[in-house]
Structures are given as structure tokens and as C-alpha cells.
Amino acid sequence: MDTLLLVLRVGLSLGVVVVLLWMVQKRWSKGSRAGAEADLAVVSRRSVGQKASVVVVDADGRRFLLGVTEHSINVLHDAPAPIPVDEPAFDESMRAAGMGPRGMDDAGSRALRARHHRPRQEALSGSILSPKTWQQAGAAVRKGLNL
């Protein structure tokens, strides 16, 4: 009977913690959604000192070079954002020449893609909210209890 009460208490505590984490995540994500509507992308960042960095940002069709310190942000340079290169057209022209996208033959290109291929991960992969995590935990408990 004591074991059952202990398991129920632990389960209830874990449930409360999960609900609280979910509520905190929802509150924080609301603030970031307003900024997500703007067309803004950090292209690159380089530290130039302990508390200073240079950042390249694309915003609304413009590219900005920003100097960022602990107390200020200064625009160092701005220009039109570069037009993205149509990579599939480049890959097709390389294949037409008998070469892969990186200048190697098709067999080498396939081997390179196979080596660097990673299976698509879910957004919650490895999280306590992931169903797969709970399935693995259940399997470990069953194995420990020899069920």
C-alpha cells in the first residue's frame, strides 16, 4: 500500500511539473511570435571582444552590418540583400556535365549525401514531452520489473 501511495505522489508531482513547464513555454513563445512575423534573419555573428560583436542581419530585403556592444547597437553598413542562388539549377547543370553538385561524379555525390544524411528529428525529440521518451521509460521500467 505504501508503494502505491509513493508511486501516486511521484506521478502527481511529475504531472504538476510537466504542466508548469508547458505553461512557462507557452508564455515565453507568445513574446517571440510577434518578432517572428517580421522578415528578419541573423546571417552571421563574430565576436570582436569580450562584450562586443559584429552581426550581419537580413531584414525586409536589406542586409545590415551591426556593431553590438553591451550598451548599444550601431549600424555600420547597409546594402540590398543578395539574391539567393538557385542551387537546383546549378546542380542540374553539373549533372548535365556528368558531374555531381560538388564537382564529383554521381557515385561520389551519392556517397557524400549518404554519409551526411541525418534522419529528420521531431521537434520534441529527446524532450520529456516526447511520446518516444515515455515509451522508452516504460520499456526500461518493465525490463527492471521483469514484466
Rank of each mutant, 00 (worst) to 15 (best):
S13W: 03
M94L: 07
M23F: 07
D106W: 14
I128Q: 07
A97M: 08
A59P: 01
D105V: 04
L4S: 12
A140D: 06
K143R: 13
H117V: 05
V55S: 00
L20G: 07
S13I: 02
P101Y: 01
F64W: 03
L6M: 12
M23S: 14
G144L: 13
H77D: 10
G15S: 15
P101H: 05
V48S: 00
S47L: 13
L12A: 13
R113S: 10
D91F: 00
A96F: 10
K143Y: 06
S93F: 10
V7R: 04
S53R: 15
D105K: 08
D39S: 01
A137G: 13
R115H: 08
L124Y: 05
L6N: 07
Q135Y: 02
T69L: 09
R142L: 09
E70D: 14
S47Y: 12
Q121E: 11
M94W: 08
E87D: 10
M1C: 15
L5Q: 09
E87A: 05
R118I: 00
V141L: 04
A52I: 02
Q25D: 15
V17A: 09
V55K: 01
A59M: 03
V85I: 06
A96E: 14
V68D: 05
V17E: 12
R113A: 10
R102M: 13
R142P: 03
L5V: 10
S127W: 06
A52W: 04
A81Q: 00
A59V: 10
P101W: 00
M23D: 11
N74W: 11
S72L: 07
D78H: 15
V19D: 05
F90E: 11
A137C: 12
K26P: 02
I83K: 15
A107H: 11
P131M: 06
H77C: 03
R102N: 12
A79T: 08
D60T: 03
A89M: 15
A52L: 02
L145D: 05
S130D: 13
A36R: 08
Q50R: 11
S13L: 07
L5E: 05
L14V: 10
D60H: 07
S32F: 11
M94N: 04
R63K: 00
M99T: 08
R45K: 08
V75I: 10
V7I: 15
V57K: 00
Q136S: 14
S53M: 12
T3R: 06
W134K: 13
L147F: 01
W28A: 09
L124F: 04
R102S: 06
G144M: 06
L124R: 09
K51S: 06
P101D: 03
S47F: 13
L145S: 04
A36K: 06
V85W: 03
R113I: 04
W28F: 07
H116D: 08
E92V: 08
A139E: 10
V17W: 13
P84R: 00
A41V: 12
L145N: 03
K51V: 12
S109N: 05
G100S: 09
P82W: 10
M99E: 00
T3H: 02
L66S: 02
T3F: 02
R45D: 09
D39A: 05
V42L: 14
M23Q: 14
R62Q: 14
Q50F: 11
P119F: 01
R63A: 02
V10Q: 13
A137H: 14
D39T: 08
